[in-house]
């Protein structure tokens, strides 16, 4: 129960990882305790810096919407995504066609 899993080429030991996280956590809290002592909660120190402008009341206006996440990634792969979204056409009969197509290809491969 407490031993490790041998995967044939390597092994997996969850307790080594937990020990690692404990050590890393200890290091983190040590470094954090070395930080500035003059920080005070609830003073001007934790005001949001919004380019010198007043921070909007509604969080909506300072959020990056989900559709803008990974903009660079989707932009770089634009051709791939254009083809892929066009492929997911929403036509029920096309979906059925792909199934029959796979069946045909598999038949060619298996029967030969």
């Amino acid at each position: 129960m407490w031993s490790l899993i041998d995967t044939g080429f390597g092994f997996w030991d969850v307790y080594a990882w937990i020990a690692f996280f404990l050590l890393a956590g200890g290091g983190f809290f040590y470094l954090r305790s070395q930080g500035r002592k003059d920080y005070r909660r609830g003073t001007d120190q934790d005001d949001i810096f919004y380019g010198g402008n007043p921070v909007p009341e509604d969080g909506e206006e300072i959020t990056v919407p989900a559709s803008s996440a990974y903009w660079g990634f989707t932009r770089a792969l634009e051709g791939w995504y254009k083809g892929l979204t066009a492929w997911h056409s929403g036509m029920a009969t096309e979906y059925l066609g792909y199934m029959v197509l796979v069946m045909g290809l598999l038949a060619l491969a298996v029967v030969r």
Binding site: T85, H88, S89, G90, M91, A92
Partner: peptide
């Protein structure tokens, strides 16, 4: 028409 019923796609 099946071509019109495709609100779910992409």
């Amino acid at each position: 028409d099946v071509r019109e019923i495709r609100r779910l796609r992409g």
